[in-house]
Design a protein around this nucleic acid. Sequence first.
DNA 1: AAGCCGGGGGA
DNA 2: TCCCCAGGCTT
Length: 361
Amino acid sequence: MDETELLPLEWTNHLLDWYDVNQRELPWRNTGDPYKIWVSEIMSQQTRIEAMKPYFDNWMMRFPTMQDLADASEEEVVHAWQGLGYYSRARNLRLGVQEVVEQYGGHVPRNRKAMESLKGVGAYTAGAILSMAFNQREAAVDGNVLRVYARLYHIEDDILSTKGRKRITYLVEQTLPYDRPGEFNQALMDFGSAICIPQNPRCHECPLSAVCIAYARGDAPSLPIRIKKTKVITISMMVGLLKWGDYYLLHKRPNTGLLRSMWEFPSVEEPASFIEGASHLENQVKKFGCTVVLENECIQELTHLFSHRKWIMRAYRGIITFEGTLESLQAQLPADWQLLKRSEFADYVWAGPHGKLTTLC
DNA sequence: AAGCCGGGGGA
DNA sequence: TCCCCAGGCTT
């Protein structure tokens, strides 16, 4: 079935008219600069525009060109990303840009296949860059687009399923205008975030309500359908703010998994009791020739929610004893442990909620 | 197809 | 609290 027959394509012009008046002023918009658009697209994945804007400005100051980013270390790049979340985006953006600099002579490829082969660039981002930077007629199907089309065409498939996404991608490809595809894609997003919002859509202000099937049936608020499967697992965690003189003992998380390669306070997951958690921490510092005395009073309880994990963190102070010099203690520490003064904390990348605990130091 | 990967803002 | 956001990678 050709679902485009369900609606007259006139609505795409109404949407572009709305966009001409209501489009947001964004630093990467209407620049035609593929690097700026690339950075903005990666930063805005699963992230609200208002949240990533200051990061974008800072990023462009630190890495003004693709060459600057390609030359930067992973550490620098992740540091500039600190606080935005999904840190693989930063690592992959750097790798993708390096590939463009090295393999494509610094020119962003202008076809979907080459674009999607770049690290961190999937179907959405490829379509966004091709349409916005090069004005190609390519679909860029994100959460906004899925929602807008599910309502306009009254699609009851789960939009998180492959079937639902494919169906809507097909519809977008059919409806994408030939003259202003890049602006049309951006119009869908601005429209989705201003009018066709997830909860309580503003149908009374909507320029497309006359053609929207969900609106006609009174189903706009209940669409789209999203079925999530992953459930959040709760993990309790004992955190030690362990001090030796002016120095705090810190641990670098492994280079795989959640918050990889970021610094944290020594922690014990799921301790059966305070005693058991404390003994784990004691055993840990014992490897470095230290002893530690932990105060049994929890100085802060902090709950932190990830998309798939819930950490309940309980922080305790502890005093480390070591008979020897700073140098001899440092010599005992493996590469993933270090001693740091409070004043040096800002130079390091903190593992999410551990960064919040630094205010206790 | 499902799990993994952060943080924040709005309701 | 819960929801969900300008998604992509890995298994």
